[in-house]
Design a binder for these strands. Structure first.
Lengths: 195, 195
DNA sequence: GGAAAAATGTTAGGGACTAACATATTAATG
DNA sequence: CATTAATATGTTAGTCCCTAACATTTTTCC
């Protein structure tokens, strides 16, 4: 096996993330020191920073973006951009939701209730926005996406964030999928009056 | 004069902000220490933190939100929400733009080019989003704004951010007002195909 | 002018993060 | 298997953001 190294790296990475998450949920984000996380994972604090650039990244990092880009690109181009993003998201979200609802809820709640994390949520979502833009834009990726595509992408991210926020505010009781659909509806029919 | 205190506070606040801005533009955000900013403004570093909770807030803080809320609320309620926000923004933005274009450009560029600031931009814009939501929602403010209003508000903030980003990426050469209008257009006609 | 209140300074310290260097562990080679 | 190179990890010392506690000054009010 020439890949013992990578497997060990994956293990430490996972150990760090899980230790961090456990401690965050138990004692709160601010009260948990990097030193402690590292100790819990059996490494030194330097090793932590070699795996995650900052303390915040342990929570913020996720890796769905390439998938999202492909899904958007796979939508029929005759559909309006907003619809393509919507269908792409809803083609995969229900499965993730069904499988990891609790983890998703805990993570979202931690994100929303910790000021410094909440403030960086959009940064983490920025990756998804880029994915949407690229999925909507020129398949070759040669030229930058037009402003319209970028606006739609950012609006979709905003709608998703709003839906998840409402979900967490409601203690995760309501159906997130329904909220997401409602949010996209509001985007697609911006002329409709509220309440 | 019973308000010498407030005037002096305003002066120190302004001195701190200007010193910070000058040093940031000259040496970069990271390279500028709070100690230095305080010294430049003739106070100690503790005083700095008594005026601004964090180093980032010197750049991020602005105070347009109450105005925005009022402007949105003042729009005719027969108009669709998106239109109300658009008209509200465009009723005041051109004047600000005409007067403070260069300062606005420098500030935006600093924000966008400094990772830690960029990541907190949406947080700073969150205040505007709340203002939009309140402006769109129940005038009494008794009940929370409906999801539709929140989505529209977040989408508008997203559109504005996208427009400003494009403006800065273009070195501030294009007309920002036109970009903002184009961004709102893309929101109002999400069905239109791109390019 | 003197007391109360508010602003500011001083000092000490915690905690995130970095740089430099030392050490250990794994991989490739003879 | 021993050696050497590459990579991962640890140690230490230090910078900087930010806070707490307390002392000192400045402003306001009586």
């Amino acid at each position: 096996m020439t890949h013992w190294r990578e497997r060990k790296r994956e293990r430490t990475r996972k150990a760090l993330r899980e230790a961090a998450f456990r401690l965050f949920v138990e004692h709160g984000y601010e009260a948990t020191t990097v030193e402690r996380i590292a100790a819990e994972a059996g490494v030194s604090h330097m090793t932590f920073f070699r795996y995650f650039p900052t303390k915040e990244d342990v929570v913020l990092r996720d890796d769905y973006d390439p998938l999202l880009e492909e899904l958007v690109r796979a939508q029929p181009r005759r559909l309006p951009p907003l619809r393509r993003v919507r269908d792409a998201v809803l083609s995969v979200f229900p499965a993730v939701y069904a499988q990891d609802r609790r983890a998703l809820y805990l993570r979202s709640r931690l994100l929303l209730s910790t000021p410094i994390l909440r403030s960086r949520m959009p940064e983490s979502l920025r990756g998804s926005q880029d994915a949407f833009e690229r999925g909507l834009g020129d398949p070759s990726g040669a030229e930058p996406p037009p402003l319209a595509a970028r606006v739609v992408a950012s609006a979709c991210v905003a709608a998703l964030t709003t839906a998840i926020t409402a979900w967490v505010e409601n203690n995760g009781d309501t159906d997130l999928i329904a909220l997401v659909e409602e949010a996209f509806d509001a985007l697609e029919a911006p002329g409709t009056d509220d309440d």
